[in-house]
């Protein structure tokens, strides 16, 4: 039983390597077309990706660091407590008595707010602490990805070698359809994620013009785009960093506390503005971009999508939700072929 966690981490690495291989396969194939060297294609694609990744993570960490430093200074000043107190009073006043009584006293709220903030910082720190093992895993995933990318077509050929003659042609068709399904899904998702990221950045920029004072908008946008990869729950996860940063930056500012949308709907610290902005981005994505770029990428019924997400989320968590749809798409292809084989067994 002790070998299980070890095995699962290796399987996880392989899954990620396979995922990256599928993402980069087409790009490597097209570079190979011009350079006539597959190894050069793999080197160019991976080194560019790694460079962009390192630059992004590096500047994100340093920016986040200075943001946290600023915020800690702010917390230590007196106005943090007064600001939280004002906020809780204004929320209380705007609610009917019945619900207002459910909200704890101001002192308790300050305590809760402080604890939550400390908790967030601690988890960020522990995440940085585990960077060591993360580095090892990333390195192994890189090695696996390089090998898979260079040898992909040969690996596929070796797999076909084990197929019985009877199922050869059906098997080849199944592999091709699975590849098509995954790459279509991935390409669609990457395009949709990028468009959500760009739209979110534009939306946050607009909010800043209205005085929202949100920093790190590029990072927030990219995180929202990535979170968007998880269907249904993702968009809500994407809002969290923006709301947190708006709170951190605007605490102590009376203008932000008393901000109102259209001068009538209260939206302290621009929280409601941010939520509305993300909902608009989601609507643009769901109604215009996704149907255009993803189309009926996996061809699953919305009910099936929800069920599959629930199963994935319950079994493996957020990662399960991320992989649930493509895995279901692959299973659908396999099932279609198996049904075909059983119906037409006299032809094989």
């Amino acid at each position: 039983m002790e070998i299980l966690p070890f095995l699962s981490s290796i399987i996880g690495m392989l899954v990620f390597s396979f995922l990256f291989t599928t993402i980069f396969l087409q790009a490597v194939d097209s570079i190979e077309r011009y350079t006539r060297s597959r190894a050069l294609g793999v080197f160019l694609i991976l080194s560019t990706t790694i460079m962009i990744g390192v630059l992004f993570i590096g500047s994100f960490i340093s920016n986040l660091g200075s943001q946290i430093k600023l915020f800690t200074q702010k917390i230590q000043r007196e106005d943090f407590t007064t600001s939280i107190e004002n906020l809780s009073i204004s929320i209380r006043d705007s609610l009917p008595d019945m619900i207002a009584n459910l909200i704890p006293e101001s002192e308790k709220i300050i305590l809760i707010a402080k604890n939550v903030m400390v908790g967030i910082f601690q988890s960020v720190l522990s995440l940085l602490g585990s960077a060591g093992s993360l580095f090892f895993i990333a390195f192994m995933v890189l090695i696996f990805t390089i090998i898979l990318l260079i040898e992909y077509h040969d690996f596929k050929r070796s797999l076909v070698r084990f197929m019985p003659n009877k199922y050869l042609e059906v098997g080849l068709r199944m592999i091709y359809n699975i590849e098509l399904q995954i790459s279509k899904y991935l390409r669609g998702q990457i395009l949709a994620a990028s468009s959500v990221a760009i739209l979110s950045i534009m939306g946050l920029f607009l909010l800043n013009q209205l005085g929202a004072n949100i920093t790190l908008i590029v990072f927030i946008g990219i995180i929202a785009g990535l979170a968007n990869l998880i269907p249904m729950v993702g968009p809500f996860i994407g809002m969290i960093p923006a709301i947190l940063i708006a709170l951190m930056n605007n605490i102590g500012s009376d203008i932000a506390l008393n901000h109102q949308i259209f001068g009538s709907i209260p939206s302290p610290f621009f929280v409601l503005d941010i939520i509305i902005m993300f909902i608009i981005v989601q609507q643009i994505d769901n109604n215009f971009i996704t149907p255009l770029v993803v189309g009926e990428s996996v061809g699953l019924h919305p009910m099936a999508v929800m069920l599959v997400l629930l199963i994935g989320g319950t079994l493996i968590g957020p990662l399960g939700m991320l992989f649930a749809i493509p895995v279901a798409g692959v299973l659908k292809v396999v099932m279609t072929e198996i049904i075909f084989i059983t119906k037409n067994s006299h032809l094989l």
Binding site: R157, V160, R161, N165, K166, L168, E169, V170, L172, R173, F340, N344, H346, L347, L348
Partner: peptide, 20 residues
């Protein structure tokens, strides 16, 4: 793909899906 077939083994049957 290199494949070996026994005597009297079908490579493919009439009306079977064709791939190559």
């Amino acid at each position: 793909h290199e494949r070996t077939y026994k005597k009297d083994e079908h490579v493919f049957k009439k009306l079977a899906p064709a791939e190559g």
